[in-house]
């Protein structure tokens, strides 16, 4: 069971939900797929040790002896990763999206591939029973997808995997959502929160996955607009995390609040039971 934790904006509470949920369940995997700025580690203090797995992707390499400087590859590249400057074609690998199209359009077989490192995966096999994985994109790289794909390959289908997705509704978040079995959308009860939830819903809807909402920083007055929207869209609200100073204080100290108030572990466990039942699993 793969559960993607998503939100339309940063700061809604994805990492809060992902880390507290993971700590409430026995023997789960937690994957931090926000590879541009992974932060679940701040709350879990993993010991990665020496484990460091490089993530690479294939980028073009031009054989100047074979290249006839026709410029077809330059013309073809949607991402402008190639340029014909002076008497040679130059590759700008950080702009390349590894589509391989340049190789296809080259009439003289002057283009081959070479592996380029674009990030790393780190792992701690046991944080209070959690198998924790973290993807990190190298600084300057444009596409986070290769790192997210490598990370998602670490999912053990016999376990519950909780995936802390990148914020927003761009390809990186869609990559995580489309690979999941269930999408949990985290929203806050503000006009911005509702707007960002609508954005997420508009995108995730297309994937036709079972889904649900967690309201973070919930308060009785503010929740109404989110509740009306969820009801209208027939998306179940599985949990509300209240807008409480103590929760914010623990967050600021890097302490998952389930560690301070174990009654919350029961609430997260109950939520998972409801989600599994909703998905037709037991």
């Amino acid at each position: 069971m793969k559960i993607a934790i998503l939100s339309g904006k940063g700061g809604a509470g994805k990492t809060t939900v992902a880390t507290n949920l993971a700590l409430s369940l026995p023997g789960v995997q937690l994957l931090d797929a926000d590879v541009e700025e992974p932060n679940a580690h701040l709350f879990l203090n993993p010991h990665f040790g020496n484990y460091l797995e490089p993530v690479t992707r294939n980028v073009p390499q031009i054989d100047p002896k074979k290249c006839i400087l026709c410029g077809r590859c330059v013309e073809f590249c949607e991402f402008n990763a190639l340029a014909l400057l002076g008497n040679r074609v130059i590759v700008y690998p950080e702009a390349c999206h590894s589509c391989g199209g340049c190789k296809e359009v080259c009439n003289v077989n002057a283009i081959s591939g070479v592996e380029r490192q674009v990030g790393v995966l780190r792992r701690d096999q046991d944080i209070s029973g959690i198998e924790f994985w973290q993807g990190e994109l190298s600084v300057g790289e444009e596409s986070s997808i290769p790192v997210i794909r490598a990370l998602l390959k670490k999912i053990n289908r016999r376990k519950i995997a909780i995936i802390d997705a990148p914020p927003g509704t761009a390809c990186s978040a869609v990559e995580v959502a489309s690979d999941s079995d269930f999408c949990l959308l985290v929203a806050e009860p503000t006009p911005f929160g509702l707007h960002d939830l609508q954005m997420t819903v508009d995108v995730i809807e297309q994937l036709e996955k079972p889904w649900g909402i967690v309201i973070n920083r919930s308060d009785s007055k503010g929740d109404q607009a989110l509740e009306d929207y969820a009801k209208n869209k027939r998306i179940p609200i599985f949990l509300k995390i209240p807008f409480e100073r103590s929760i914010a204080e623990f967050y600021a100290q890097g302490i998952p609040f389930v560690e301070k108030d174990p009654s919350w572990k029961h609430r997260f466990q109950k939520m998972i039971k409801q989600i599994l039942a909703y998905c037709g699993e037991t």
């Binding site: 949607e78 991402f79 402008n80 990763a81 340029a83 014909l84 400057l85 700008y92 702009a95």
Partner: peptide
């Protein structure tokens, strides 16, 4: 969308 600098140099 991306690589504007490279295309502009071209």
């Amino acid at each position: 969308g991306s690589g504007a600098g490279i295309k502009a140099v071209q």
